[in-house]
Simulated scan of single mutants.
Amino acid sequence: MKRLAVLALVCAALAGCAAPSPAVPANRALADELDPAAYPRGYTENPTKQELLRDCGDETRSWRPTPGDADGPTVRAIREKGYLVVGVSQTALLLSRRDQASGEISGYEVDIATAIAQALFGDRWRQSLRFVNMPTGKRLLSLDTQLNREVRAKDATVAEVPQVDMVLADVSVTCTRVRQFGIAYSRPYLATRSGLLVRGGFKEGAQGPDDLGGSKVCSGDQTTNSAEMIEVRDRQVAEGKTPLHPVSVQDTSDCLPLLQRGLVDAIATDVIILGGFRLQDPGTRLLPYRDAEGTAAITLSGDPEKRDLVRFANGVLDRMRADGSLLDAYEAALSTVEDRSALPDEPYRD
């Protein structure tokens, strides 16, 4: 026994009885480096450029509610089937998150969906409100529009996306989405800006994306944040700088475990989502960088025969503004977000 102990000491002193194991960074498990399964489905490095036009006038503005909306064809059809189906994230802590112990889902967007269900079904709203989890990149394909029906007929992967009546999942308002998916927006219920989240201690002097050259920056697929990081990369390349490396994932929530495991270096999304990530991991750090302010709205079918549901949702939002319940829900859900913006008050198109 004593002889074995001596041999062990000799080996340690010579540092060479066996080849040393490769060093593993403290913030990264070795399995993550070797196992492709460590990456979420849809993980893509350096995605191609996405066009997400924001400013296009009335094209993205919503329709003013009218007295007959409660008896419109789409609203009647939802009442007749007996339930409202709403697509949400279910992983966005402050907006819509399901408690795995109780099964209850809560957040600012859930409060709005609840108000719409109450307006539709009265006291029966609890039995008549159904939530469906929506991956970030495919959430707008879940709406029944003429353009989406054409895509579903050609693409089997899109045909698998569940259909919903409306989406409340922090959808930024862009006219590109109106043209691509045939959608319509409600009046905005949230204003926010893009930000960047990194691990504590990572590039301490970094202020924004120009300081993240060579770093992997994660965003949800087909989001304005992903488009912004791609634009930054392309600009840095044109200027002869070391570019950052955009990474896209099917759902923005997949970015947090990637950051925690050291597989990406930063997350780019809006500060509301980042505020929820910081609550889940206080060891992260929000950079000073803020991009242009955008607005989020309920997303619905933009087909002309279905605009009564858009107007109906706007009527609910307007009543919530008038009685103060929208502001109360906003403040209650987002009180931990220090740099949250004021509620938007954008005009209708008519």
Rank of each mutant, 00 (worst) to 15 (best):
A37D: 12
S128G: 14
G240R: 15
L334P: 04
S341V: 06
P344E: 02
E231C: 02
R64Y: 10
E33W: 15
S21R: 13
T157M: 08
P22W: 15
R187D: 07
L14K: 06
Q207D: 05
G16D: 09
R290V: 01
V164H: 06
E204H: 02
L300T: 03
V310C: 04
A332F: 13
G240K: 08
P288L: 12
D328Q: 13
L258E: 04
T295V: 11
H245M: 15
A70H: 08
N27A: 10
I267L: 05
G276Y: 07
R278F: 02
E338I: 13
Y108P: 15
Q90I: 05
Q280G: 15
A266T: 07
V249E: 00
A26C: 08
T48M: 15
Q50H: 09
L300R: 01
L279Q: 14
P243D: 02
S142R: 00
L141I: 01
M320E: 13
V171H: 00
L309I: 02
A13E: 13
V237T: 05
T269K: 00
P65G: 02
D234A: 08
L326T: 11
D318Q: 11
Q280D: 13
A31H: 15
D234I: 01
M134C: 03
A117Q: 12
L120S: 10
R290F: 06
R319W: 02
S102C: 07
R139Y: 06
L197C: 09
A313N: 12
R79M: 12
S215N: 12
R3I: 13
A296N: 12
T284F: 11
V217S: 00
A31T: 11
D32V: 09
T284A: 13
A169C: 12
R278I: 03
Q236A: 15
A23I: 14
T136C: 13
P304S: 00
F181V: 00
K2Y: 10
A119I: 01
L120W: 04
A153R: 03
G205F: 00
R54H: 01
Q180N: 01
G42V: 04
D221G: 12
Q260S: 14
C56H: 00
P347Q: 12
K81P: 08
L143C: 00
P188H: 04
G213Y: 01
G87V: 01
G57P: 11
S102R: 09
R311Q: 08
Y330L: 10
V167M: 01
L212N: 03
G315S: 08
M229V: 05
Q118M: 10
V10S: 03
G57Y: 01
L84I: 09
D303Y: 03
L141D: 05
Y289K: 00
V171G: 00
N225T: 11
G205A: 05
P65L: 06
R321G: 09
A18I: 02
Y83D: 07
A26Y: 13
R233T: 05
T176I: 04
D270S: 03
L197M: 12
K154I: 03
P20R: 02
T66H: 10
R126N: 13
S62A: 14
D339Y: 07
S215M: 08
L300F: 05
V247A: 01
E104S: 15
K154F: 07
K49N: 08
A26V: 11
L140T: 00
D123N: 11
